[in-house]
Design a binder for these strands. Structure first.
Lengths: 120, 120
DNA sequence: TCATTGATACGAATATAGACGTACATACGG
DNA sequence: CCGTATGTACGTCTATATTCGTATCAATGA
């Protein structure tokens, strides 16, 4: 299946907010935001792959990330320019707390703790 | 029931994004953002009251709005200063599209159309 | 060619969210 | 004190989201 990414002008605010209103996807975006492309397996290796596939779809269909098929990897990249163009300031105002706000990091860490001992 | 509003420092990014990732609540916030306090009945009078109560709770518990009991009204007010303090730029980057982006307005309008003929 | 790696597809189970009717509470105005 | 207005509480139904095991597929490399 070729991933269906929305065109820039079809990215919806509600969809972006819904996609980011989830601790796993917020944690994933925090990692993906650093540098360029990332293979799926590098982002949250402790979460089952089929679970992550579900979240990659949510991020992709909402227009938050590009997903590109290269070799046997599906590489992820934040759609920074598209998001900045559609909703100026939104991404920065989210990435900021993601790397510097204690409670936001706690939200993600809490999630990690809640599934300790779960199968990888 | 006295509404349980989170303290400013307890407002969570994930909760705010989840609360705003819904067309009804986005439409409600668009109205509430104008001026000061608003009685519930002024915001989306076409939606059943018990449905709105559900959404007011979501907005209140996430820290997006204050809800104050005055007379027989429960007045709503955007927690602008608290949100700006916790997540600088986030609110403005959402309110902007809410009043000026055609697709965001379309998202809300689509929802309205989808329930035409529904009971008030 | 065959095992390995990286990832999706499918399906099922569970959990959470959304919608809303009805009943109830409270404040006001006669 | 009774009727009306504003809105919550509760319960139920439905819809959507989340989790993840298993099967599968494509690319790689020995």
């Amino acid at each position: 299946m070729i991933a269906r990414h929305p065109k820039r002008e079809d990215i919806r605010l509600e969809a972006v907010l819904t996609a980011l209103g989830n601790p796993i996807r917020l944690a994933a975006v925090r990692t993906i935001a650093v540098g360029g492309e990332h293979p799926c397996c590098d982002v949250l290796p402790q979460i089952p792959k089929s679970t992550m596939t579900h979240h990659w779809r949510a991020l992709r269909d909402s227009g938050v990330v590009w997903q590109r098929h290269i070799g046997r990897e599906y590489r992820l990249e934040l759609r920074r320019e598209d998001l900045d163009s559609r909703f100026p300031g939104l991404l920065d105002s989210i990435l900021g707390p993601l790397v510097s706000d204690p409670l936001t990091q706690e939200t993600i860490a809490e999630y990690d703790r809640s599934r300790q001992g779960a199968p990888a």
